[in-house]
Amino acid sequence: MAPLIEVRGLVNRFGDHTVHDDLDLDVYPGEILGVVGGSGTGKSVLLRSIIGLRQASGGTIRVFGQDLQELSAQDRSRVEQRFGVLFQTGALFTSLNLQENVALPLIEHTGLSRSDAEHLARMKLALAGLPAQAAWNYPSELSGGMVKRASLARALALDPEVLFLDEPTAGLDPISAAAFDRLLRTLRDALGFSVFLVTHDLDTLYTTCDRVAVLARGKVLVADSLEQVEDNPDPWIQDYFHGPRGRAAADAHQRLGREDY
């Protein structure tokens, strides 16, 4: 199967500091790829490079078989409409209420009327688990968890083919985080999109991801199913997955079984 996103020989430098050094990574259609790595290993930088917010210092990134940096502005916007992005801090437009936030891409890109777009937007907000009356709230009136959900609803607005999530469950309580994981799998199964998931949440990793990519020392050390990654002898990976938190998450996952999620 041809990869949806193909990163080859990616190099990213900030001054003298090299974050990515000849990094390769593939994302296949329909999979949920978890990206893990210590703080400062450039997970968010990788995400920003793929969605074209950052011009990489070297290497190529092909999305849907096209290199974003080579496309004209119009073609590029068309490709970007097939992305859904959830930023780390939500990045909701603070001057718009939630349904306007979600309706904005619908109105701009699909030519829906405002009332149709807002109707759909309210459905997406509810799908992301927000109460109906929250649609008229402004981002500044929301808790952190609600911002995450609203931001997911906006990312899903155009029914994207690839969803980029930057630490979606950080700051959520365990119940909401588990619901988020379940929601993500449900939507992925139903809509068939791929997910590029940057996370530190081991439970999310165990319950949702089909493959896990481990970033360290500027490269992807390994990108494979969780069982394979766990057995990798690299000391950082061993620490990560077999440290106290990793073991707890693995145990919990085994007890509950994948089907329960």
């Binding site: 309210r122 459905m123 799908l127 449900t186 199964d189 068939g192």
Partner: peptide, 17 residues
């Protein structure tokens, strides 16, 4: 099954609107 999931999820989402 995935279509059923989608329909059920959307039905749940629209019930409270």
């Amino acid at each position: 099954p995935e279509r059923r999931e989608l329909l059920l999820a959307v039905a749940r989402a629209t019930s409270g609107l």
